[in-house]
Each structure stands twice: as C-alpha cells, then as structure tokens.
C-alpha cells in the first residue's frame, strides 16, 4: 500500500490528483445537496412536535457533524505531516481549516435560529452548543497562527502542532462541558429526545450530510492545490504551470 501511496507525496502528482478529483466531488455535492435540501424542505413530513421548524435539521446536523469531522481530519493530516514529514499533509491542514471554521459557524447559527422557536432563546449554554463554540475558537486559533508567520513552512508546522494539541483537548473539552452542563442546568432544557427518526425524514438528512461532505472534499482539493503550488513556487514545474495558466487567461480575455 505504501508503494502505491508514495507517488502522491510528490507535489506535482498531488496537485494533478486534486484537479482530477475536483469535478467528481463538485458534481456529487451539487446533486446531493440539491436533492437533499428540496426533499428535506418540501417533501419530508413535518415533525409532530416541532412542526416545520425541524427542517433546519437538514442544515444544522450536517454542518455540526462535519465541523467535528473536518477538525479530526485536519488533526490527522497534521499528525501525518509531523510524524512522517509529508509536506502535502501539512499543507492540507490549512486547506481544511477555513472550510471547517465556516461549517462550525453555520452549525452555531442554524442552532441558534432553531433554538429561538424551540427553547425561546437564541442561545442557551447547552453542552453541545458550548463545545461547538469552543471548537470555533480552536479553528480560529489554527487559522490565525498559520497566518501570523512570514514563512509558510513554519506557519504550517506551528498550525499542525496546535491542531494536534487541540484534537487531544476536544474530547476533554466536550466531556467537561457536558458534565458542567448537567451540574448547572439540570432539566431546564429539554434536550431533543432522539427517537428513531422515521425513514422519510432520515433519507434527506443522509443526503445533505453527504452533500456537505462532498463540498468539504471539493473545497479541500481546491485549496490544497493552491497551497501546493504556493509552497513549490520556486520549482520549475510550478513556473511552467504559472506561465501556462496566466497566458491562457490573458488569451481568453483577448479573444473576448
């Protein structure tokens, strides 16, 4: 398996792979998101308790799940980058971070909008909300740390170390907040009873989860490709690539 994987550690091959995968991820994300959203918004049955407000679930749950998934994959990339000194993995950390931060933000905002009619308040110090907020801070820390360095390599490594430290802390933060919450709030918040969700509600949810996953994958490809060429800016293959791309842009402008 290593023999098969090894060529992808080379920058040029990885760059090409990113653009090879991009159209698949893009189309899959458009299709699944479109079908899932329309199905969820228009065709799924309304919840017997929450009425139509529950339809926010089709955006809230995917962004919440994937905000954590993105953080985990970012930390795995960071670990691979640190342990095996694979540069593309280091670069992937910063490719994933902004997308993960946007998902976390969306999970928080949709959670707040959903919370207003259900709990009567935009924000409650619910355990899951609180740890999601802390996750957003962790993302912002990684992004800010990366950007603070003049030297991209140093920034990428520093951000990787922080991502690894963060991922060790994420479960600790999560359980501490959960425990704190039960200590303080008791039964004031009725957590959503998670009954076995009916299949006509579940299918669109699975579709939107897949949709957000493909968006994450597509954007990671796009951003990683940029990171790769930026990192290899002095190499001949990037020089050739830049000449080719810039001249094709100017030619298409001239033909117009």
């Amino acid at each position: 398996m290593w023999k098969w994987l090894h060529p992808y550690a080379k920058a040029e091959v990885a760059y090409q792979l990113c653009y090879k995968l991009l159209p698949y991820f893009s189309w899959l994300s458009v299709i699944t998101l479109a079908v899932g959203s329309v199905w969820g918004l228009a065709f799924a049955p309304a919840d017997y308790q929450q009425g139509d407000s529950f339809r926010i679930i089709y955006f809230h749950v995917p962004t919440a799940i994937l905000s954590m998934g993105a953080y985990t994959s970012m930390a795995i990339c960071a670990l691979i980058g640190m342990v095996w000194q694979i540069r593309n993995a280091e670069l992937a950390v910063y490719a994933i971070a902004p997308v993960g931060a946007v998902y976390t933000f969306l999970a928080l905002v949709t959670g707040a909008i959903w919370g207003k009619p259900m709990w009567g308040a935009w924000w409650v110090w619910d355990a899951r909300l609180t740890s999601e907020l802390i996750l957003l801070f962790l993302y912002l820390g990684v992004i800010a740390l990366y950007n603070a360095f003049e030297d991209r390599r140093t920034g990428a490594r520093a951000a990787s170390i922080l991502a690894i430290v963060g991922v060790i802390n994420v479960p600790i933060i999560h359980y501490s907040v959960e425990w704190w919450n039960t200590l303080h709030q008791g039964a004031t918040i009725t957590k959503f009873a998670k009954p076995s969700i009916s299949t006509d509600m579940l299918w669109p949810l699975l579709l939107t989860i897949a949709g957000f996953m493909f968006v994450l994958a597509a954007l990671t490809c796009l951003r990683l490709a940029n990171q790769i060429i930026l990192n290899d800016a002095r190499r001949p293959w990037v020089k050739a690539l830049v000449e080719r791309e810039l001249s094709s842009v100017s030619m298409s402008k001239a033909s117009k």
Binding site: F137, L138, G141, A144, I173, S176, V177, W180
Partner: peptide, 18 residues
C-alpha cells in the same frame, strides 16, 4: 504574539476552569 497567544490558549483552559 500576545493576542494570538490568548486566542490559542484560552479555549484549551476551559476544562481546567470547569
């Protein structure tokens, strides 16, 4: 590094505080 330090460190302090 001061403000950045607090941005990085404070979220990690939360479990201890709790």
């Amino acid at each position: 590094g001061g403000v950045l330090l607090s941005l990085i460190v404070l979220p990690l302090y939360i479990p201890v505080l709790i």
